[in-house]
Structure formats: structure tokens, C-alpha cells
């Protein structure tokens, strides 16, 4: 590199902190990443529920009343939307990482994703069945 070249001023664009608002796919990416906050909230809520149930019938009733306050329902609706976004994006991307082979031939991505969605449906059905008293 000659001295002349080294002196040449490059223009280096800076990435703004809000780089993700200008593009739909970037926005969707950031929302997907933010879903983890609601996954963490889900764990907190779940442990609070288990703790209340373990403390006895009265505190379980108190938890149910607390959970039906309007702001709690709104919070949980938002959280539900985010964990559903997490689940959909997660299962859609699963075939990108996993190459499933059947008799040496890789299965098409749609079938791998389909398998994940089917597992999601089965898991949800089993949980609902247990919670709603089938067990």
C-alpha cells in the first residue's frame, strides 16, 4: 500500500442503535429474540403457580384470583403471543440445523418442520389432558 492510498479517507457508515426498525425482517428478528424475555416470565409464573399449590388450597385460590386481574391477563396474553412466535419460528428453523436422513437420503425440510409441529400438537394435547383432569 502506498502512502497515498493509506491517506485516503474512507467513509465508514455507523450502524444506528435502531437499525432493526427500518426493515420488516429485522423487526421480526428482534421480536423473535425478545420472546426469550417472555419465556423467562413464563418460568417465573409457572414456579409461582407451583409454589402456591404446594402451600395449600387457600394460597392456590389466591393465585387464581391474582391471575385473573385484568393487567395479569393482558400481560399473559402478550406473553402467550411471544411464546407462540417463539415456537413457530423455532420449529420452522429446526430443519436448517438438523439434516434427518431416511435410508441415506435427506428428508425434505418441510417434513422435518412438520414433524416438529406435530410433536408440538401432541405435547400440548397431553398437557391439556393432564391438567384438565384426564389423569
Amino acid at each position: 500500500m502506498t502512502a497515498n492510498q493509506a491517506d485516503v479517507r474512507r467513509y465508514r457508515p455507523r450502524t444506528s442503535v435502531f437499525w432493526w426498525v427500518h426493515r420488516r425482517s429485522y423487526l421480526l428478528f428482534v421480536l423473535r429474540e425478545l420472546s426469550c424475555v417472555f419465556v423467562a416470565w413464563f418460568v417465573v409464573y409457572l414456579v409461582l403457580l407451583v409454589a402456591a399449590a404446594h402451600r395449600g388450597s387457600d394460597s392456590y385460590q389466591q393465585f387464581l384470583e391474582w391471575s385473573s386481574r385484568p393487567w395479569m391477563v393482558v400481560l399473559n396474553l402478550v406473553a402467550l403471543a411471544f411464546v407462540v412466535l417463539h415456537a413457530i419460528t423455532w420449529f420452522t428453523l429446526a430443519p436448517k440445523a438438523m439434516v434427518v436422513r431416511l435410508q441415506g437420503r435427506p428428508l425434505p425440510a418441510r417434513m422435518v418442520a412438520g414433524g416438529h409441529f406435530a410433536a408440538w400438537a401432541v405435547a400440548s394435547a397431553v398437557v391439556a389432558w393432564i391438567v384438565l383432569g384426564g389423569w
Binding site: 485516503v8 474512507r10 467513509y11 465508514r12 457508515p13 450502524t15
Partner: peptide
Amino acid sequence: EPLANFPVI
């Protein structure tokens, strides 16, 4: 515009 994320000469 020039390609993003690269210094512009």
C-alpha cells in the same frame, strides 16, 4: 447506494 457494512472508498 454502495454496499452496506463496508467502508466506502
